[in-house]
Design a binder for these strands. Structure first.
Length: 579
RNA sequence: CGGGACGUGGCUCAGCCUGGUAGAGCGCUUGGUUUGGGACCAAGAUGUCGCAGGUUCAAAUCCUGUCGUCCCGACCA
C-alpha cells in the first residue's frame, strides 16, 4: 500500500478527550475516530490491526474445534424473558421498537440465541460435544463509556459456547478454550495472566478471566508472587485480615454510649472515642430479593458485593435507600447495628472474619448512639456466616501463605463454565444412551476483540508511539524513501524494493508522501510499524540503505541485500508469533 | 444516577475573574527558499465563541436552562 493512497490522519498533538496512553495513540496514530461517546469509526490502519486480531482468534478457535456462525445482533426480547436475563440485565440492554410498536433488543451477548439454536437442532448425545463461536458486534448500554475502545457502547467480541453431555466433558471443553485463549493472546503479542473470577450475571460456577496488567485497567487482581494464586478481588480470598479479630470476652454486656454526630467508622476511631476500626462492626443494609437484609463486616473491611450476590444467589441486590433503612430499623446510616431493634424477619449476614468477635463496637439503631462490649456470638442473631469481605494487599495467600499483592488489570478474555442454567430455561436437551432426556451442559467464552486491540497498544508503546507486535501490526514494514522525486535514485530504488517485498508476501506500506524526512520518521514511529527501511541519498551514495526495527538499533544494509534482509527480518519475527 | 471540569477555526489552547469590534501555535492555501528527525520567509483563508433564553446601550465574558465531552464516584452507612 502506498501511504498517499490510504488514509492515515496522524496527529501531532494529543486530543484533549483522551486520558490514557492507548486511547491517545489510537487517535494520534490515525487508527480510529470518535463518532460519539463509546462509538468509533475504524480507519484503515486500525481496521487492518483489528482484522489481524480477528484472524488470530479465528485460527485458534478453529484449531480448538470451534464452529463459526454469525448470529443476529437484533434479538426478540422473548428469549431474554425466557432466560430470566431481561430482568437481570435490563440496565445493559438497548431496546428499540419497530414501526408496529413491537420491542426488540440489541444483543449484549448471545447465550440465549445460541441455546435456542441448539435446542431446536440437537437431540441426541451423539451430536455432542459442540462449540459454536462468532465474531460479532455487541451492544451494551454502558453507564459510562470510557477510555476509547476499552468500554464502549458498541464493541466487537468473539463469543463461543460449548455444549456437552456431562460435567466432565464440559470441563474438558473449558480447558480446551482456556488453552486456546493462552495461545491467542500470546500470538497477539500480549502478556496476559489468567485469574479466578466471579461469574456475574452470566451465571455459572467456574470461571477465569484473562488479564493484561495495566494501571489503567478497571479490575483489581489479587495475586501471589509464587504464581500459584491469582484472582479478581471480586472473588479473591486470603487467610484473613492482618490484624486479628479480638475473640476474648471481657464478660461485660453491651452498653449504650452517646456518639452525637458520629456517622463513620473513621470518626469513631479518633478522639475522643479511640476505637480502632478492627474493633468495630460495620453494618450495611441491602435490598435483596426477599427484602431488607443486614450485612455485617469488620470496621476495617470492605463488603465485596459480587461475593454477596453470588452467595445469596439473589438477582436484584442493591444498597437500601436511606428511607428503606429508616423504615425497617428506625435509625439512619451511621448509627446502625444488629444488636437490638432488628425485626425478626430481617436476615443478618455476617462476614466470617467476625466469627467469635468480642468487645466490639457497633451502632445502636438509635441515631447518635453506639454499643460497646458487643460479643457477636452472644449479642447478635446471625442468620448466616458468609465470606463477604474484600481481600486487602499484604494478607496471606491461601495456597502459599506469602503476602498477596494487588494490581490493576484490563480484562480481555473470560471463560465460564455455565452448567445447565440456560439449557434448562431454553429447553436445550438431548436424549442419552438410555433414552433419558437431560439438559445440555454449557460453557461460554468471550474475548473483547476491540478491547484486546487497545490493550496491545497500552502494553506496547513508548514515548514515540505504538510498538506493534508484528502479528497485529497494520503493516509489517514501512518503506521510507527520503525523496519522492520520480527520477531520484532513492525513489526508483524504493519502487523496486516495494514491488519485490510485495511479491515476497511482505505487508509493506510505502511512504510516498512528499514530506520531509523528520515527518516521515515521526509518523512511522507513531504508527508503530515493526520495521522501517529508509532509503536516502546519503547512504545510497555508499550503496547502502537503513533497516530500523521499531525500538531497536539501526542496521546498515547493502542495497543489493535490502530485499533479502527485510524478508529475513520479517520471517524471523513472524516465527515468534507462531505457536 | 451523584459530584467535578471543560465546550472559542481541522487540532492544542489563551481571552472570561474586571462586559466594549475574537487571538496564538500547529494544520490548511499560494509563492519562494529548504531537504536525514515533526523546516524557514512572505502573503492568505477559515469562527453565528456548543445551543436556547435572560440581564445590559453592549455578552465569548454575567445569570438560567439545555446538549455534548472528559474525569471521579456509585458498599465505607
Amino acid at each position: 500500500m502506498r501511504w498517499s493512497q490510504t488514509f492515515v490522519p496522524t496527529l501531532k498533538e494529543t486530543p484533549a478527550e483522551a486520558e490514557i496512553v492507548s486511547h491517545q495513540l489510537l487517535l494520534r496514530a490515525g487508527l480510529v475516530r470518535k463518532l460519539s461517546g463509546g462509538l468509533y469509526t475504524f480507519l484503515p490502519l486500525g481496521l487492518r490491526s483489528l482484522k489481524k486480531v480477528e484472524a488470530i482468534v479465528r485460527a485458534e478457535m478453529d484449531r480448538a474445534g470451534g464452529i463459526e456462525v454469525l448470529m443476529p445482533a437484533l434479538q426478540p426480547p422473548e428469549i431474554w424473558h425466557q432466560s430470566g436475563r431481561y430482568q437481570t440485565m435490563v440496565d445493559a440492554l438497548y431496546k428499540l421498537k419497530d414501526r408496529a410498536g413491537k420491542e426488540w433488543v440489541l444483543g449484549p451477548t448471545h447465550e440465549e440465541v445460541i441455546t435456542q439454536l441448539v435446542a431446536n437442532e440437537f437431540n441426541s448425545y451423539r451430536q455432542f460435544p459442540r462449540n459454536f463461536y462468532q465474531i460479532q458486534l455487541k451492544f451494551r448500554d454502558e453507564i459510562r463509556p470510557r477510555f476509547g475502545l476499552m468500554r464502549a457502547k458498541e464493541f466487537i467480541m468473539k463469543d463461543a459456547y460449548s455444549f456437552d453431555v456431562s460435567d466432565e466433558a464440559a470441563m474438558a471443553s473449558y480447558r480446551r478454550m482456556y488453552e486456546a485463549y493462552t495461545r491467542i493472546f500470546a500470538r497477539c503479542g500480549l502478556r496476559t495472566f489468567p485469574v479466578e473470577a466471579d461469574t456475574g450475571v452470566i451465571g455459572g460456577n467456574y470461571s477465569h478471566e484473562f488479564m493484561v496488567p495495566a494501571e489503567t485497567g478497571e479490575n483489581d487482581v489479587a495475586y501471589c508472587e509464587s504464581g500459584k494464586y491469582a484472582a479478581n478481588v471480586e472473588k479473591a480470598v486470603s487467610r484473613g485480615p492482618l490484624l486479628p479479630t479480638p475473640v476474648v470476652s471481657s464478660g461485660a454486656t453491651p452498653e449504650k454510649f452517646p456518639t452525637p454526630g458520629v456517622v463513620t467508622i473513621e470518626a469513631l476511631s479518633k478522639a475522643p472515642y479511640q476505637i480502632p476500626a478492627f474493633q468495630q462492626i460495620k453494618t450495611l443494609v441491602y435490598r435483596i430479593d426477599s427484602g431488607i437484609a443486614l450485612i455485617l463486616v469488620r470496621g476495617d473491611d470492605h463488603l465485596n458485593e459480587p461475593k454477596l450476590i453470588s452467595q445469596l444467589g439473589s438477582n436484584a441486590v442493591r444498597p437500601a435507600t436511606s428511607e428503606e433503612i429508616f423504615a425497617s430499623l428506625a435509625a439512619h446510616p451511621g448509627s446502625l447495628g444488629a444488636v437490638s431493634g432488628v425485626p425478626a424477619a430481617v436476615p443478618v449476614f455476617a462476614d466470617l472474619a467476625l466469627q467469635g468477635a468480642c468487645g466490639m463496637v457497633t451502632g445502636a439503631n438509635e441515631d447518635g448512639n453506639h454499643y460497646r462490649h458487643v460479643d457477636i456470638a452472644r449479642d447478635i442473631r446471625v442468620t448466616k456466616w458468609l465470606d463477604l469481605r474484600t481481600v486487602q494487599a499484604g494478607e496471606h495467600c491461601v495456597e502459599t501463605d506469602l503476602p498477596l499483592k494487588i494490581r490493576r488489570a484490563i480484562e480481555v478474555g473470560h471463560v465460564f463454565k455455565l452448567g445447565t442454567k440456560y439449557s434448562e430455561k431454553l429447553n436445550a436437551t438431548y436424549l442419552s444412551e438410555d433414552g433419558q432426556r437431560h439438559p445440555v451442559v454449557m460453557g461460554c467464552y468471550g474475548i473483547g476483540i476491540t478491547r484486546t486491540l487497545q490493550a496491545v497498544i497500552e502494553q506496547c508503546q513508548d514515548k514515540d508511539g505504538i510498538r506493534w507486535p508484528l502479528s497485529v501490526a497494520p503493516y509489517e514494514v514501512c518503506l521510507t524513501p527520503l525523496s519522492v522525486a520520480p527520477q531520484s535514485p532513492a525513489w526508483q530504488l524504493a519502487e523496486q524494493v516495494y514491488r519485490d517485498l510485495e511479491l515476497a508476501g511482505i505487508q509493506v506500506i510505502l511512504d510516498d508522501r512528499d514530506e520531509r524526512p523528520g515527518v516521515k520518521f515521526k509518523d512511522s514511529e507513531l504508527a508503530g510499524f515493526p520495521v522501517r527501511l529508509a532509503i536516502g541519498e546519503k547512504s545510497l551514495a555508499k550503496g547502502e540503505v537503513e533497516l530500523k526495527p521499531r525500538g531497536g538499533t539501526l542496521e546498515v544494509v547493502k542495497v543489493e541485500d535490502a530485499v533479502r534482509r527485510v524478508v529475513e527480518w520479517v520471517t524471523t519475527e513472524r516465527a515468534k508469533y507462531v505457536i
